[in-house]
Simulated assay, not measured.
Amino acid sequence: MVNGAAAWAWAPGGVVYGIFLFTVDAGLITAIDIVGDPASIAALRIELPPL
């Protein structure tokens, strides 16, 4: 979860290098935004599952 929304994080070893943010409408993914900028990633509230 990122900012309370559906997302996928590329986080080898628990270090986040990229985020895929999903826009969901009526149960379907309608858009995917990819964030790789370290400053933008740092501004997000990211909830990773335990390793």
Rank of each mutant, 00 (worst) to 15 (best):
D25W: 04
A9S: 10
A6Q: 10
F22I: 08
F22S: 09
R45C: 03
Y17L: 13
V15P: 02
W10V: 14
P38Q: 07
W8C: 11
G14W: 01
I34C: 11
V16L: 09
A11G: 10
T30L: 09
V24A: 08
W8K: 13
G13K: 10
M1E: 07
G14R: 07
A9P: 04
L51W: 05
A9T: 08
L51S: 12
N3C: 06
G14Y: 02
M1P: 03
A39E: 14
L51V: 11
E47W: 00
V35H: 01
I41P: 01
D25T: 15
V35W: 01
L28T: 12
N3Y: 03
R45I: 05
P50I: 10
I19T: 04
E47Y: 00
F22Q: 07
V2A: 02
G36R: 12
S40H: 08
A9I: 03
N3H: 05
A26T: 11
A26P: 02
G4I: 07
P12K: 07
G27P: 06
E47F: 00
D25G: 06
E47L: 00
A9C: 11
V24M: 09
T30M: 09
L28F: 13
L21N: 06
W8S: 13
W10E: 13
W8H: 13
W8I: 12
G4F: 03
I34W: 05
S40Y: 03
S40A: 15
V35R: 02
A43M: 04
L44H: 00
A5R: 15
L44S: 03
A31C: 09
I29T: 14
F22L: 15
L28K: 15
P50K: 12
P49V: 05
G36F: 03
G18I: 08
Y17Q: 15
A26D: 15
R45A: 09
M1A: 12
D25R: 15
I19A: 08
V16G: 02
A11H: 05
S40M: 12
A42C: 05
P12Y: 04
D37G: 05
A11D: 10
P12W: 06
P49S: 08
P12C: 11
F22D: 05
G27S: 11
L51F: 11
L44Y: 00
A42R: 03
P50S: 13
I34S: 12
G36M: 12
G14N: 06
I29G: 09
I19E: 00
A26E: 14
A9L: 10
P49D: 06
V15Y: 01
A11Y: 01
I41R: 01
V2R: 01
V16N: 06
D33K: 15
V24W: 02
P38Y: 02
A9W: 01
T23Q: 13
P12T: 08
I19S: 02
V16P: 03
A31S: 11
A7Q: 04
R45E: 06
P38V: 08
W10L: 14
P38W: 04
T23V: 11
G27Y: 07
P49H: 03
L51I: 10
P38F: 02
P12S: 08
A26R: 14
L28V: 13
V2E: 00
Y17D: 14
L21K: 08
G13E: 10
P49G: 05
